[in-house]
Amino acid sequence: MEPLVIGGRKFNSRLFIGTGKFGAGDIMSRAVRASGTELVTVALRRVELSGGEKDDDLLGRLDSESVLIVPNTSGARTAEEAVRIARLARAAGGYEWVKIEVVPDPDYLLPDGPETLKATEVLAAEGFNVMPYVNADPVLCLRLVEAGAVTVMPLGAPIGTNRGLRTRDMLEIIIEQATIPVVVDAGLGKPSHAADAIEMGADAVLVNTAVATAGDPVGMAQAFARAVSSAELAVDAAPREPRRPAEASSPLTGFLRDDA
């Protein structure tokens, strides 16, 4: 497949890694390296913006030369809060990319569509590369494109559930309609789920829980990387659709021969 381009930046890997469920320890940076990813999202609320103590700092353990660090607005419950977090990230750290997460529901952690759209409108107009995390809602995704998002990030299943592409039918529509890259985020529990998403036509996947909570996060990061690249090869190799069983019905074009 051709390299993925989002917001004018080229990515050689279609696997993105979230860090919310990692500690700040060595495991996180090793898993990130093993995944080959070039985009890592980091919750701004976990970042020490004042520059003080670095021991517990996620950023200090990431190589910003090889990976793009995208702050997310995790913790925001309204558009206003998300906008404030993004502006803070830009002011304090110079971040021009932001993943918008507006999650008012503390149980299922599902994103708030209307608030996400509002935040996207504001931040895109301010020149941010906005990556909104949303439910797999095709019309919302179209609206986000119009609002100026650089990608849409629909969920495959509720976050942290490891259940795979439960929103498959909606994801198919989103992918078909999309004019910007589609990153399937949340719910991918196994490498085969990630491969499934890429085979379906998603441009990239974002994984956090499945890697961070695996018995061997570094090994799992590697497994995801291979699943994603093998699915890319498969897409290029143009697989055949499964055949439908034949349907017998009366001919519809017989009238063409009656004329002869």
Binding site: E247, L252, T253
Partner: peptide, 11 residues
């Protein structure tokens, strides 16, 4: 393949 096309199209 007009007939299979027509069947699929009608469906």
């Amino acid at each position: 393949l007009l007939e299979p096309m027509a069947q699929r199209s009608a469906g």
